[in-house]
Structure formats: C-alpha cells, structure tokens
Amino acid sequence: MIRTTEIAGLIRLEVALDLRQRASWAGMLLYVVSAVYVAFLAVKGGMGTSTWNALFWIILLFAAFNALARSFQREDAGRQLYLYTLVDPRSVILARTIYNALTMVLLSLLSLTFYVLFMGDHALEQAHLGQFLLAVVLGGIGFATVLTLIAAIASRAGNGAGLMAILGFPLVLPLLLAVMRASKLSLDGVAWSVTSTYFLGSALLDVITLTLAWLLFPYLWRD
C-alpha cells in the first residue's frame, strides 16, 4: 500500500526543488519576520502570557497558510500529470504532507525564535518548556497535514491563496484551539497529566486528516 521508496524519492525531489528555488524559503522566513516585527511595533510595551500566546499562534497560522499555499502551485498541470503517471498519486500526497510537516516544524521553531527575540521571553519564565515546544511542533505538523489537502483542492479549483484561506480556516480551527490551549497551559507550567489530552487530541486529528488525505487524493488529481 504505502510505497516507501517512492515516497522517499518524492521527498528528495521536494528538497531538491526547494534547494533550487531558495527564494521561496527566503520568502517564507521574511513573511514570518515581517509579521513578528509588525506585532512588535503594534503591541509596544508589556503584554500578558495569554496575549503573548495568542499572538504567536496567529502569526504561525498565517505563516502556515503562506508557506503551504505554494505546495501544489509550483508545477504546472502538465508536469503534475507526468508525476502522477510515474508514481502512485497517494505517494505524492503522503510525500508532500511529510515534507510540508518537516517544513512547518522548522518554520514554527524559527518563528518562535524570532518571536522570542522581538517580543521577549517573559512568558516563558514559568513555562514547562518541553511541553511548549511539543505544542509548537504538533501545531506545525497539524497545520501541514490539514492545509496540504486544502492546498491541493484550492489549486485544482484554480483559485490559489484566496480560496485556500476560505476553505482552510474553519478546518484548522479545531486543531488550532487544541494546540493553543495546550501551549497556554504549558506556559502556565501545568503538569503533563492535564495537557496530555490536548496533545493526544491534536495527534488524533493529524492521523484522521492523513487517513482522509490518503483515501481522497486519488480522486482529486484526475481531470
């Protein structure tokens, strides 16, 4: 069912494409840095832990939309068709999802670094740091899994980023609420026993999303 060699090859292809088009990664990073800087200019002065947390997740959410919108748009229809004749379409969606998840983990950790740099680390003083990082990583992976399928639908509809925002926002909300709550609790330094339900919930969402993407994608790529 799952063809690992194909998937590994496709991930290598994605990496090669990204290395060739370094501008796209630079664009994603610049987007995050600009967003953080705008937040820094707008907030000015102190803010509480919950505002710190909320602002971080909003920035990360928009960064995710910006980063993942391109995942099905960088090839034209002809090259996609060529790809689907070479490999199982399911391998394509799995490879893209895995690659996007890796991208988002990297991007969210970088965003966190910039965010702490500009907005200060006062919110992290009492935090349970391991939990908080887990929430950030799980959030990044979750955004990637949900938004990859949405990006595929939006690009097939021929109306890229705008449609993706409309389709994607309500669908990432369950995940966003779960990880936001988990990260807020971990910033307050709450024990694992309390936050683990949120982590399990977001992991469950990821698994369901991935399964649905696996099942539905073969119907999506055809014209």
Binding site: V146, L149, I153, R156, A157, L167, P170, L171, L173, P174, L177, A178, R181, T197, Y198, G201, L204, L205, I208, T209, L212, L216, Y219, L220, R222
Partner: peptide, 24 residues
C-alpha cells in the same frame, strides 16, 4: 469532484470538532 472531496473532509473534521473537542 472537488466539492465532494471537501465535503467528506469537512464533515469528518466537523464530527471531531463537535463531538471530540468539547470533551477535551
């Protein structure tokens, strides 16, 4: 086809949101 895919995906996530998240 696109609407059907979105509809199935959306309904599954909706079920999660209505019946799992409130219990969290």
């Amino acid at each position: 086809r696109l609407a059907a895919i979105y509809n199935i995906f959306a309904f599954m996530l909706l079920v999660m949101f209505l019946f799992v998240v409130p219990r969290l």
